[in-house]
């Protein structure tokens, strides 16, 4: 067993609880895992860390009209370590890095108890051929789910290169291919301002979807 982040050998700790049965395969060493920061409790709506009540941004989203997003759950804070992790996984294209936190991803997913269909966030053709994989689909596969492809993306501007105001002012880059009439969960890697998920949520809700949730790795 080796850590999928630092490649160090993982020597499982044996105690009386697991002496008869070694724990399930570990994929991340304790040092690397300790560099991720958990979010607790965070904003009950979007999971923004270091607050406990509905945060300012969520209030803003629901001020003029109803917020299309029901709730977001994120695993970890988007700290420097997470930024490096995302850069290596998504931009450098180290696909197997997702295995490092797969057990945590599955655990949080189970705890959320969302028994809804899972919708993938599409990439533009250009980004997809550059990266070789869609990060949202990779995550959904980690959850042992089948992604629903309801959307397509026009244009290829990177969200991460824009500022909050620019993102919010930008036109909706997504187009609906198929409608759905059940609640869904959107799965993506990062929730920064929440614009991407709300763009999609608006589209889905306008076309008959009753509730939209989102599940993201980092917040």
């Amino acid at each position: 067993m080796r850590c999928f982040i630092c490649h160090q050998e993982i020597i499982p700790e044996v105690n009386w609880a697991n002496v008869w049965k070694i724990d399930a395969k570990q994929t991340c060493c304790s040092e690397c895992l300790s560099l991720f920061e958990n979010i607790n409790p965070g904003c009950p709506k979007c999971g923004r860390p270091s607050v406990e009540e509905i945060c300012f941004d969520c209030v803003r989203w629901g001020r003029d009209k109803e917020d299309p997003l029901e709730k977001n759950i994120s695993l970890f804070r988007y700290n420097d370590f997470a930024k490096d992790w995302v850069a290596r996984w998504k931009y450098r294209g180290d696909y197997e890095l997702i295995y490092s936190i797969a057990p945590q991803v599955k655990k949080v997913w189970r705890e959320a108890g969302w028994n809804y269909s899972v919708v993938a966030v599409p990439l533009s053709e250009e980004r997809l051929s550059e990266r070789g994989f869609n990060q949202s689909e990779a995550l959904i596969r980690t959850l042992d789910k089948e992604p629903l492809h309801l959307l397509e993306r026009q244009g290829s501007e990177k969200q991460s290169k824009k500022r909050r105001t620019e993102r919010m002012a930008a036109a909706n880059p997504f187009k609906l291919k198929k409608t759905i009439h059940q609640p869904v969960v959107l799965v993506d890697d990062i929730y920064t301002t929440g614009t991407t998920v709300r763009h999609i949520a608006t589209l889905l809700k306008e076309n008959g979807c009753p509730k939209v949730y989102s599940f993201t790795l980092f917040r």
């Binding site: 080796r2 490649h7 290596r88 450098r92 294209g93 180290d94 696909y95 197997e96 997809l128 051929s129 990266r131 070789g132 994989f133 869609n134 990779a138 596969r141």
Partner: peptide
Amino acid sequence: PHLFGHLPHAKCQQDCLYCRNCIQMGRVI
């Protein structure tokens, strides 16, 4: 072997082998 990975490659529609050792300099697949 543990420094190689498999990627479900969108371009090839199949699993492709890539090197995880030098991934920081861009992916060799």
